[in-house]
Design a protein around this nucleic acid. Sequence first.
RNA 1: GGCCCGGUAGCUCAAUGGAUAGAGCAUCAGUCUUCGGAACUGAGGGUUGGGGGUUCGAUUCCCUCCCGGGUCGCCA
Length: 583
Amino acid sequence: MNYALDRFAAEVRSVISASGKVPEALIEVQVPKPSIPADLCFPTFRAAKEVGMDAPRLAQELAAAVSGAVPPDSLIGEVSAVGPFLNFALHPQHLAAAVLDEILCASDRYGRESTGAGKTIVVDYSSPNVAKRMHVGHIRSTIIGQSLIHIFRALGYRVIGDNHLGDWGKQFGIIIASVVREGKPQTEGEEALAHLEAMYTRYSEAMKDDPALDEEARQWSLRLEQGNADARALWQWCVETTLQVNQRNYDRLGVSFDHVYGESFYEAMLPGMIQQALEMNVARREEGGAVVVEGLDEKLPTFLLQRSDGGTLYLTRDIATIAFRMREFRPDQIIYVIGAPQELHLRQLFALSRAMGYAQEVELVHVAFGTVFDATGQALSTRRGNMVYLETLLDEAVARARGVIEQKQADLSEEEKERVAEMVGIGAVIYNDLYQDPRRNITLDWDRMLSTEGNSATYLQYSYARCRSIMRKAEQALSVERLLPMDPTLAPLLIHPTEQQLLKHLARLPAVIREAGERYTPFVIADWCYTTAREFGVFFEQCPVLKAETPPLREARFLLVTATAQALKNGLSLLGIQAPERM
RNA sequence: GGCCCGGUAGCUCAAUGGAUAGAGCAUCAGUCUUCGGAACUGAGGGUUGGGGGUUCGAUUCCCUCCCGGGUCGCCA
């Protein structure tokens, strides 16, 4: 797409180029920091050196040459030389017209791109284990992954989300062995999972001191792989129960998958994969029977593809998964949204897939994220007794949000209170995961997460609700039909500094979405949303809409508020956060 | 020990090699007979872990050391 700021940048390059003073290749324009009163700049250091002139002088000469060459309808406003920098400001009226038009015409589609057209991306995310309740350890992958899916879809890619369920392997041997020992839980749903979890933990503990138990679990995992009917039936029950329970969490988080191929799905492909690795000599069978891979890369530790008892491993299923995805989807990229502790595993997987010829035409990306700690800085674990389950987390967040609503918006209907509490509570949980670089560890700090002030989901939602409130009131007097086509005399009235700042910021959304995709970092969008809310807050204080000095100004500001609400809503939706009409 | 990731204000975090390193929280001081105060304004607060190097310019790139976390074949 060719958005306003794209056209602005193109025009800037073009006028510099037209001056004939700088070789095309040396024209590098950048966005200066917000503290600099310019919208685009050209640092002339390198060009000056090349041309044999000192930088400030080149900037001066360029400013003089360029100023006269700006076409009358250009997005370029003032051009000036500040020391060695050649600065370009946006033309206030032209900017206002372009941005408002763009946002109001595109509405829900504002910010989208077609750069990904014809390309496919598979996102591997969430991936909880079967027979366990989802807990905070799963939330990051789920939330970050879902946001990346939204972002890449906005960029025009065909995106396939796959919940790579942990439903296979030795852990299942333990589950089956424990059920054989203690009996199948007579409970259902979440409760049944809690029981299975407890049994699993008990068995694992006992296994440490009793090799016979370990052996039994190992055997059950093998029998499962070999098709033992009892094992299969129990496995099936566990998978179904888990999927059903998890679905509630996914619904609340607004998460949905295109596929839920668990690890078990790849079962039939595993012997072939191992065989192929052996034939290609990227792996070899040890005397004990285990299949090892070594020497793919000097720095990569060796790893196993098959256990000495013939059982398969996580990595075996992962390599089969790549083979399947390549065949089935022909993706240009596969994104793994998995915690940082598994970084080595993924490097090994990627190296193996390259060695086996699967990754020639695909970019394999690991989006690694940090660990969740509790408020005291402890990692969350069942053993430590500070584990927080996803359902509990969401319930608690919603309950707290509900408390604030009772306090501040008591006149909302019961039904609306409930709806808003859900949006605000869930929004807070999501935002807590997306507001910073995914690599960082995050803290589960209720007070900060559900803060109603500052950089929080609540503040963003509140800002949206305020926009909508103004719009509701204004629309009684301003007919919606007059929005489009836009009266060309209105936008140029928005020349107040805070109006201009808001407009410029709204114009950045498309670039921000691109950056979020390039870096695999939803926080870039979160940050944009936050700045939007802040700038709207300033505008709100300084520029009355309904009580604007003149009717046209009132309409122009109404358009700006409408555009702000739309853009903010678009940004939030890329994060998976809902925007309430009131709260 | 090898490899990976972090180290920026009291705390939580930003900053494609560019101009005076920015926000939120906390602290202190203000705005307001409100288009929604879940708001807005201002102040104080920094040797960007230490030391070298690269260059017109380094929080950013390179080297080295320190601190924290993670990880290193039969779990996932």
